[in-house]
Computed example of a mutant assay.
Amino acid sequence: MTVARPALLHPAAKPLLFALCLLPFAWLFYAAAANQLGANPAEALIRSTGDWTLRFLCLVLAVTPLRVWTKQPALARFRRMIGLFAFFYAVLHFLAYAWLDMGLDLAAIARDIPKRPFALVGFLALLLLVPLAATSFNRAIKALGAARWQALHRLVYGIALLAILHFFWMRAGKNDFAEVAVYAAVIAALLGWRLARLRRSRALAA
């Protein structure tokens, strides 16, 4: 019998997680206000918000493996919040690009995105995150039905792959793939775990 750890079910657990997820935003806000983002603040903001989007996507994908390995089903109650923060930082990433790079010129943004493959796949990943964020509440689950809701939220796997492709193409111009390799390895391991688990379940059902 699996017993949930009291800390995971404590009423303060979700508020604490919320505060922790906001810390990167708070730091970036402070650093921008205090002029501590280095010689190129715009690039620092765009890059940092993109990095945190990838990190939260990795955390979302890690919830289920951690829940299974630790035998703590209560971990699942935090997945929705982590996913919403992935969307939050993705929106910040796009807004930083749209404002600091493009001056909020919508026509220029519309011309720029299709011209650059890394921008196009990044924008597609953001668009795919929108329905996931919009249906991340209990009423949406009831309206869609559990099966359709789960099928929709499997888009996160494709989103993670688009995000790492976006990062790869962005770094290709600088021939700097060290960080890309780390994120790619993490995402590959998490998706590989799911694929192996699916194959085992199908083998047992056969």
Score class of each variant (00 low, 15 high):
78 F>A: 06
98 A>F: 10
142 K>E: 15
124 L>Q: 06
68 V>N: 13
117 P>R: 02
70 T>Q: 06
59 L>Y: 08
82 I>D: 00
103 G>E: 00
97 Y>K: 07
148 R>L: 08
108 A>Y: 06
161 L>Y: 00
88 F>P: 13
92 L>D: 00
106 L>M: 12
154 R>P: 04
174 K>D: 14
181 A>G: 09
113 I>K: 03
58 C>H: 07
120 L>V: 11
76 A>F: 03
83 G>W: 00
161 L>T: 11
86 A>F: 01
130 V>M: 14
101 D>C: 04
127 L>F: 07
122 G>D: 08
179 E>I: 02
154 R>H: 11
94 F>Y: 12
153 H>Q: 01
151 A>R: 15
111 R>S: 10
64 T>K: 08
177 F>S: 15
114 P>V: 06
59 L>N: 05
78 F>K: 02
151 A>F: 00
116 R>I: 12
179 E>T: 09
137 F>H: 14
112 D>I: 00
156 V>R: 03
156 V>C: 05
131 P>Q: 05
126 L>H: 13
107 A>L: 09
155 L>C: 10
65 P>Y: 08
129 L>S: 14
166 H>M: 07
125 A>S: 14
182 V>L: 11
161 L>I: 08
59 L>P: 02
97 Y>W: 10
134 A>G: 13
180 V>Q: 01
101 D>N: 06
149 W>A: 14
157 Y>D: 15
139 R>E: 15
67 R>L: 10
77 R>G: 15
121 V>G: 03
77 R>F: 12
145 G>Q: 02
65 P>G: 14
98 A>I: 09
72 Q>M: 04
68 V>H: 13
128 L>E: 02
112 D>W: 01
165 L>N: 07
136 S>V: 01
143 A>W: 01
57 L>A: 15
151 A>Y: 03
64 T>S: 15
57 L>M: 14
137 F>T: 05
172 A>E: 08
74 A>H: 04
117 P>S: 03
96 A>Y: 07
120 L>I: 07
117 P>L: 07
143 A>Q: 11
58 C>G: 14
96 A>Q: 05
178 A>C: 06
84 L>M: 13
117 P>T: 06
